[in-house]
């Protein structure tokens, strides 16, 4: 019940939106989204309610943090300050979409 699922608003009518979750569309309430949202916006949803508009630039900002760390590590490795990464694989998720209870 407390798993959040992001989706994209495809249609809005008052406090209700149709939200695209990739393989399914659902009706989502906008009462407590706490932001102005419109068609095309991404929202984080919990139990049928949008609880947050997800700005694209903030999703990108998180990625940039990891990118920066990667670049920094590569630089240190090249300078011989860190042992090279092993390159072993991380188990990959085979399921499609999100787990939702």
């Amino acid at each position: 019940m407390c798993l959040g699922i992001p989706g994209q608003i495809v249609e809005r009518s008052g406090p209700v939106a149709r939200v695209d979750f990739g393989d399914v569309e659902k009706e989502i309430r906008l009462d407590i989204v706490g932001d102005t949202v419109e068609e095309g916006d991404f929202v984080l949803n919990h139990a049928g309610f949008a609880i947050r508009k997800i700005p694209e630039d903030e999703a990108r900002a998180t990625i940039e943090t990891y990118e920066a760390l990667l670049t920094e590590t590569e630089r240190l490795e090249e300078a011989g300050a860190l042992p090279a990464t092993t390159g072993e694989e991380t188990p990959q998720d085979s399921e499609d979409g999100d787990d939702e209870t």
Partner: peptide, 25 residues
């Protein structure tokens, strides 16, 4: 998070980046 595979599926699950973070840990 299937509707945006370029950002969610790949980038936030990239094994190379996971290696870097594991090394940092």
């Amino acid at each position: 998070m299937s509707m945006r595979p370029d950002v969610e599926d790949l980038q936030f699950r990239d094994p190379a980046k996971a290696d870097v973070l594991a090394d940092r840990l």
